[in-house]
Amino acid sequence: MRTRFAPDRGLTSRMVVTMFLLGLLYVVFVGALVALGVRALTVLLIAGGLLLAQYFLSDRIALYGMGGREVSPREAPELHGLIDRLCAMADMPKPRVAIADSDVPNAFATGRDQKHAVVCVTTGILRRLDARELEGVLAHELSHVAHRDVAVMTIASFLGLVAGLMTRFALYSGLGARRSDGQGGLPIGLIVMVVSVVVYAVSFLLTRALSRYRELSADRAGALLTQRPSELASALVKISGEMARIPTRDLREAAPFNAFYFAPAAAPGATLANLFSTHPPLERRLRQLSEISAQLGRG
C-alpha cells in the first residue's frame, strides 16, 4: 500500500496483538458452540452478511447517518485545496469530500479502501477551526484512510456481532433445551447465552482498545505528515472545549458515530470510563503530540 504516512511500530504491534486476541477468542467461541452441539451456521451466515454490508457500504451508511453531502471543488474550494495538498504530501489518491450540516464540531473518514473513501467534515468544525488546525484534523482522517482503519474495525467487530446474535438466538429459541443425553443438567440455551455474553463483553473491550490505538496512531501519523503537531493539539483542545457548549440532545444524536469521529461527541466528563471509550483521553493525545513536538524541535 503506497503512502508516506509515518509508521508507528509500537502502536502497530499493539493493534496486531489485539487482533490476534480477537481471532483467538473467535476460535474458542466457535469451538464452545460446536462442543455444545449448537448449530451456529445460520447465525454465522447472518453475521457474515451484515459484515459484508457494513464493509462494502460503510461510506454510504456513515454519510447517510450523518446527513453528509458530497461537495465539489467549486462548492468548497478551501476544503478541497487542503485535502489536495495533504494527498500530494502523503502520495495517496484523493478521497471524495463531503460536508455535514451539524453544529457538532467533528470530522470522520470512512470507506473500505483508498479508492472508496470519503472524508466528511461538519459545518461546526469549519466555523471553529482555522486553516492550519483543520489541516491537522484532515491529516488525521486521511491517515485512517491510508491505513484502512475502517476495514480493520469492521472485521474486528465481527465477533461481537456474532456473540450478540447468538445471545438473542439462545433467548428466543433454545433457552429451555436440556442436554440431549437425557441426564438433565443446565439448559443448553442458558449455557450458550452465558458464553455469548462473556464473549461479547471481552470482544467489546478488545475492540475499544483497538479503536483507541488506531486514534493514537492517526494522531501521530497526521502530525508527522504536516510537521505541525501543535496545530492538531490546538484543534483537539478547541473541539473538546466546544463540545460542552453543544446541546445534549445533539450530542446524543451524534454519539452512535463516535467510532468514526475525530473526537467523541460528548462534553468533558460526560463519557464513560476510558476502558469503554472509542478514543484515548484528551490528556493522552496531547501528551503524545507534545512528545512529537519535542522530537521535531518545535513547540
Rank of each mutant, 00 (worst) to 15 (best):
H140I: 08
S143I: 09
T278F: 00
I188Y: 04
L11F: 05
R2E: 14
T3P: 04
S211Q: 04
G299K: 13
A117T: 02
T3Y: 11
L33S: 05
V38I: 12
P268V: 03
R69M: 09
M89V: 11
S58H: 05
A163E: 10
P247L: 12
R4V: 01
E231I: 08
P280L: 07
G269I: 07
R228P: 03
L251M: 09
A163S: 11
E70V: 07
L33K: 05
Y213E: 10
P73G: 06
L186G: 09
L129Q: 07
Y172M: 12
F108L: 08
L79C: 01
R112N: 09
G269A: 10
F5P: 00
L134I: 09
V30G: 05
V145R: 06
S240Q: 14
T167D: 07
S240T: 15
N106G: 07
H147Y: 14
A35I: 08
A53W: 15
R148M: 09
Y213M: 10
S240C: 12
V199S: 06
A255L: 14
F20S: 12
N258I: 06
M89H: 11
L129D: 04
E215K: 04
A244T: 12
V30H: 05
R60S: 05
V162P: 05
G241A: 01
D181V: 08
L236V: 02
L225Q: 09
D103M: 12
V137C: 04
A223L: 00
H80W: 10
L52Y: 12
V145N: 03
P105H: 00
F56V: 14
E70S: 08
T123M: 10
T207P: 04
L24Q: 06
A218Y: 02
V145P: 00
L272W: 12
V27I: 10
R148E: 13
V192P: 07
H140Q: 07
R249T: 11
E78Y: 07
T248Q: 15
L225R: 11
A223D: 02
E141W: 13
L159S: 05
R85T: 12
H144W: 06
I46Q: 01
V28G: 06
G184S: 07
Q227V: 14
R284L: 13
F260W: 11
D130L: 04
L275C: 04
A62S: 10
F262H: 04
M66F: 10
E78A: 15
T226Q: 11
A131G: 00
D103E: 14
S211Y: 05
L138C: 05
L52R: 11
A255T: 14
T154Q: 13
A266D: 02
A263N: 06
